[in-house]
Simulated scan of single mutants.
Amino acid sequence: MSFIKTLGVAICLLLPITLRAQENLTGFWQPQAALDYDVTPNYGHNFSIANRSFFLRDGGFDFKSRQIDLAHFSKWTLKDNQSIALGIQYRFRDFFEDASNELRFTQQYNFTYRPLTVRYGHRFRSEQRITTNLTTYRFRYRFTLDFPLKGQKLNIGEPYFAGSAEQLLSVAQGNSSQYDFRLNGQIGWQLDKGLKLQTGIEYRFEEFTASVVQHVIFLLTTVQLSI
């Protein structure tokens, strides 16, 4: 309960910032579908498809598709609570606007632990984002937590909370380094043994060391199937 109260206070603090930042506030709606497939107990695949559409841009409402992302990860479990993964993603943007498509390679290490009811996680990622004219190297650290909202254990049909905070550094030849920060909070439901539904909000502070910080809000919906 103390965490929920803290989250509420954080939202109240962010709201005035959002209201003051209308001109540099962008809003996206991003539905996503993901499939987890275990080949062996220690090796598995993840496939996902996501569509990102504007709903708020330049101080006004504007519903328009921006991109489609197709991604695949191969994951190896090192221990019960540690894993490494390699990923590849292709972002289609030239269908929707005058922008380059993107090919992305990802390397990841993930560590989780659950001392009591709450599970904590640390994720480290490095990425190479390749477009027609530029290759950007990005380094990411994300802290996560999740816990059931009913009882001590998540059962079928019950809700849970998942939240995260992530710091990102992007570097590219000829460009200044870019620092981003992201806060994410979602409510999920364990609909069946291998089926989850999550919905929530992510708030991004992009280029937060610049004179003008870009504020981005995401409305997220994810369906995840594990087989």
Rank of each mutant, 00 (worst) to 15 (best):
T6A: 15
T6G: 12
I11M: 13
L15I: 15
L15Q: 09
I17G: 08
R20W: 13
Q22E: 12
E23V: 04
W29Q: 12
W29P: 01
Q30C: 10
Q32I: 06
Q32W: 02
L35V: 15
D36S: 09
D36R: 05
Y37W: 13
D38W: 10
T40F: 09
A50V: 08
F54R: 03
F55Q: 09
R57E: 11
F61A: 13
F61Q: 07
D62L: 14
K64Q: 15
S65A: 14
A71W: 00
F73G: 00
F73E: 09
T77F: 06
T77P: 04
T77C: 10
D80S: 15
G87H: 00
Y90T: 14
Y90D: 05
R91V: 14
R93I: 05
R93A: 09
D94C: 04
F95C: 05
F96I: 03
E97F: 08
S100Q: 08
N101T: 06
N101F: 02
N101W: 03
L103S: 13
Q107S: 12
Q108H: 04
Y109L: 11
Y109D: 03
Y113V: 09
Y113F: 15
L116V: 14
V118N: 06
R119Y: 00
G121N: 01
H122P: 01
R123P: 04
R123F: 05
F124A: 02
Q128N: 11
R129S: 06
L134Y: 07
L134I: 13
T135H: 03
T136Q: 12
Y137T: 10
Y137N: 11
Y137S: 08
Y137V: 05
R140Q: 06
Y141L: 11
R142W: 00
F143Q: 11
F143D: 01
L145M: 15
D146K: 10
D146C: 05
P148L: 04
L149F: 09
L149E: 05
L149K: 02
K150N: 09
K153N: 08
L154W: 00
G157V: 05
E158S: 07
P159L: 03
Y160E: 00
A162Q: 13
A162G: 14
A162E: 12
G163N: 07
Q167S: 12
Q167R: 14
L168D: 07
L169A: 08
V171N: 07
A172L: 05
Y179A: 02
F181L: 13
N184L: 11
Q186I: 02
I187D: 00
Q190S: 12
Q190D: 08
G194V: 05
K196E: 12
L197V: 07
Q198W: 06
T199R: 01
I201P: 02
E202C: 01
E206S: 11
E206C: 06
A210G: 10
Q214Y: 07
H215I: 01
V216K: 03
I217V: 15
L220V: 02
L220E: 07
L220S: 07
S226L: 04
I227H: 11
